[in-house]
């Protein structure tokens, strides 16, 4: 297995990465979504811009009421972070469910979000947490609300010449959150991943990975729950996936079960 030939470039700063991306190619962070797809020759960029060593992309810190996670943070960085565990346990819990230890040590939150696999775990997590994806491009920085970020199957609002630099996540005292995942037994991606954040006032935000061909916030379910009713059907209006491991019917059923389990976990 070998990728098509490409040119490897290493960026040492965000500015340099952005100027390299302007010439074409794709950003390479941990590479754990991109390299496998390139080996299977499903993806064939002319160039890879390695952003794996850019110091600005690392680090996890608080900025006011927001947790700020550098896009180059690995899943393991986030799963192991005391700060994340304290302020947003959802992210630590969710990150610990991704792949296997070796994948978690290399794969990054930014890379996973940019790849936008509908069965990846991060999409549901950032959606439920109301995170903002901060990106830098030739025209400077812009912030994309997570609800606007995922635009379809493997597609996002990120432009080819932009780089995800950080993820800003509001955290509030007294909130509870959980990520409940039913893993596809071979790949360990989410057949259903349900992330819930419940504010101190009881209002919930609910998001799913693995269910639809794009990750989504289930606004119908949220509306029902937030007005004191039963959750109602999951994934209304979504294009539900069906594959070897779960038919559409079973997936919707699993999503409902996992929603209930998530609600119990934050009760």
């Amino acid at each position: 297995m070998i990728t098509y030939p490409f040119e490897y470039k290493r960026a040492s700063s965000v500015a340099e990465a952005v100027s390299m991306l302007a010439e074409g190619g794709k950003a390479l962070s941990g590479g754990h979504s991109l390299i496998p797809s390139m080996k299977l020759r499903l993806n064939m960029p002319d160039a890879l811009v390695d952003v794996g060593r850019i110091p600005e992309l690392k680090g996890i810190s608080m900025d006011g009421d927001e947790l700020v996670i550098g896009a180059g943070s690995t899943h393991a960085d986030i799963a192991d972070s005391q700060l994340v565990k304290e302020k947003l346990s959802l992210f630590a819990e969710g990150a610990a469910h991704i792949g296997d230890p070796a994948v978690r040590s290399r794969g990054t939150i930014g890379g996973s979000l940019a790849h936008a696999d509908p069965s990846a775990d991060w999409p549901a997590l950032v959606l439920a947490a109301n995170a903002t994806i901060v990106v830098t491009g030739p025209n400077g920085e812009r912030s994309i609300p997570s609800t606007d970020f995922f635009t379809g199957l493997f597609s996002t609002a990120l432009n080819d010449d932009e780089l995800i630099t950080k993820i800003r996540v509001p955290v509030s005292a007294g909130s509870k959150s959980t990520y409940q995942k039913f893993a596809q037994p071979a790949s360990r991606y989410a057949l259903v991943g349900c992330a819930i954040v419940k504010q101190a006032d009881g209002q919930v935000s609910v998001a799913f990975s693995g269910v639809s061909d794009a990750p989504f916030r289930d606004t119908d379910v949220e509306k029902n729950l937030n007005s004191g009713q039963e959750a109602g059907p999951v994934g209304k209006g979504q294009s539900i996936m069906s594959d070897n491991f779960a038919s559409e019917k079973y997936r919707v059923h699993l999503a409902s079960v996992y929603l209930q389990r998530a609600l119990e976990a934050v009760a």
């Binding site: 297995m1 490897y8 590479g31 390299i35 080996k39 390695d50 070796a102 040590s105 290399r106």
Partner: peptide, 11 residues
Amino acid sequence: AVKSCTLLAAQ
């Protein structure tokens, strides 16, 4: 620990 099949020598 990393999977060396998913890493470029360049990285």
